[in-house]
Design a protein around this nucleic acid. Structure first.
Lengths: 207, 207, 207, 207
DNA sequence: GATGAATGAGATTTCATTCAT
DNA sequence: CATGAATGAAATCTCATTCAT
């Protein structure tokens, strides 16, 4: 599918990928301009369409690429030997924050991809996202020691509540950051807050 | 700001508002076409820009209008005399579902407004949303009897966790609906699931 | 359909029609450039598409317009009181040649329209052409005195052979002209040749 | 001119010729894509332009090639010993129909070549066509017994009228076929009609 | 107030052809 | 001989906004 592109020398691939991610991250699918992308990547207009037959294919390629990149990095770092639930999830939150500050454009791009409602790409992206979520949810809780949790509550519901709590907490903090003057995310604060929620959740859901 | 528009006879106002909501709801901010709006509303191009000096102002007006409309309806229906927390939140969930099926276009529009990342409107919308959330969070929990909750946990954190749980649960169900063939939301199922989470959360957060 | 366009003042309409006919006549449907048309007509790019929603509609409008114009002129000039067959067809040939030299662009355009195989317009044009031919064949032989023709041959076949003879003769002469240096059509020569064929055909098909 | 190409092994030559004829036949000169041709022929882009320095030369080569092929086939089949005019022309019509159903792509290609008005190729093609027609007209009537025709009419005019009649008749039938749902040419009907015209023309032009 | 013709920059995509390898 | 990456002009069409009437 994208073999032509992948046979390029890495430097040019990177130039194109970075230019495209930047543009899509800034403006979303619809408003992103292939003109800007080729200008930034310093390639000719025709070449982009030689590699990716249209804007949509380019976008979908980038989406896969980003997800792959982030996932790889994530699963390389996470220690699956840690079986204590809260330790594992604490680690996950930390790694996520780390990646977030390391690849801000890519996250912005992925976030856009999730939210963009451009009819063109909606269906495809949503399918990919669903698959991804299922895989991730399984993987992140792989090998977890569930014996510490209360027996009188459906364990799946407990995991959901805990996961959602941390997701929403992060979302809220990131939203606050967006509204602040410099858009700086206050990572130490997030971490502190996370610790407080860990405490609450341990108290109520552990035996 | 929009006084010119508000002085119109209601029938014309409605025609314009409905046409615009429909278009924005279907296509999102960027792809929505002012041409289609005037055609559907049966007014001239110039007139639209006479009332709302540009597309952005029109969108922001509609956003406020929709929020107002939905909020009014919501607070008219909710029984603030009910002070038991879970009873209150159960009622809120039910009313929300009711509104959702009553005004699908408006909700779709608001959803778009939240997600649309057209740089133009993002900042403004997000500010409004934040204010709104704070007001709602305060209002919805107004007069609630907090004495039933455990004393050993920060009550604000408890409320957050509960609120987030129901929000995420609804989001997940709505997303599933989007991926299903007919996009039908399975309201009874949502309600059943909600009851199960009520039970879990009561068990762990009540004394 | 084209009411917006037809409400324009005639001068502007003409500028656009002439520019478009010229471009389509020169280059055929596919290669004709809407850019060139607006440049020649001295209107903005957007305006053309305000009147005709796309290139195809513009072309089809022009086709109808040209056919109408030529037909009107033709039927205004032809004398339907003349019932003698060869007199009638002689007149038709003369009028056709007259129109041909009066509106060379329009004929070139129509010729293109007949031949253009751009998939976009083929079907529509062919339908129109077929209808037109049926009408014309009927009209041109309207009220003709058929009593002079031989009784031992199917009269329809006789008319076909005669019509085809003059059509092919004209085609051949026009083709010769295209190959000659200045592309000049030698009208007197066509007329002389026509007279000779009239003589032959009268001799063999009249009683 | 095309010696490089003609030195290729026949299999590759055929692949290229067939791919190109197919593409030009389907889309006409302008819209035919060299990209599609090389893809179908399974050769590289550069190679095509190595053999034929540009699209136009490729097209002209193909035109000559097709004309040659069809002519060869035609003159191989026609029996020049038959000197009776109508028998000869009847045979010609039959052979033409046979070839038409045997090489539909090639005929479609030639038809396109005749009609395509892409300025680029028009002049050249028309010159070739004219030469060809003269040769064919001479050849097809070679050795014909003209003594049976009436003496009181210019024999050249008689031959023209007869030739034109059969040409126009075929054209009309082919056009009808184009407008019919399945584009099927009704060969038996053409043949029957041809016989009727033979009869008429014999009656009037033979002594 | 109300109209809708007019603008023109900018969008994506195609294409024949070249040329370094 | 053979490759296919690279070019960039040109194509059609859209769109929010203005302004003379």
């Amino acid at each position: 599918m994208f073999s032509k592109f992948l046979n390029l020398d890495t430097e040019k691939q990177d130039r194109i990928i970075n230019a495209a991610i930047k543009e899509f991250a800034q403006k979303g699918y619809d408003k992103a301009s292939t003109n800007e992308i080729v200008k930034e990547a310093e390639i000719s207009k025709g070449l982009l369409f030689h590699y990716f037959k249209n804007k949509k294919q380019l976008f979908l390629f980038l989406f896969d690429h980003c997800i792959q990149m982030i996932s790889d990095d994530f699963y390389k770092k996470i220690n699956l030997k840690e079986t204590e639930f809260f330790a594992r999830i604490r680690e996950a939150v930390l790694i996520k924050m780390d990646l977030l500050s390391k690849y801000p454009d890519i996250f912005k791009f992925i976030e856009h991809a999730y939210m963009d409602d451009a009819a063109d790409i909606k269906a495809e992206i949503e399918k990919k996202v669903k698959e991804l979520n299922e895989i991730n949810f399984g993987k992140i809780y792989e090998g977890i020691d569930l014996t510490k949790f209360r027996d009188d509550i459906d364990i799946q519901k407990i995991l959901k509540i805990i996961t959602w709590t941390f997701e929403k907490m992060s979302e809220e903090e990131l939203n606050k950051a967006k509204l602040s003057p410099g858009h700086e995310v206050d990572y130490p604060k997030i971490q502190l807050e996370a610790e407080q929620y860990f405490e609450v959740l341990t108290k109520v859901f552990y035996k």
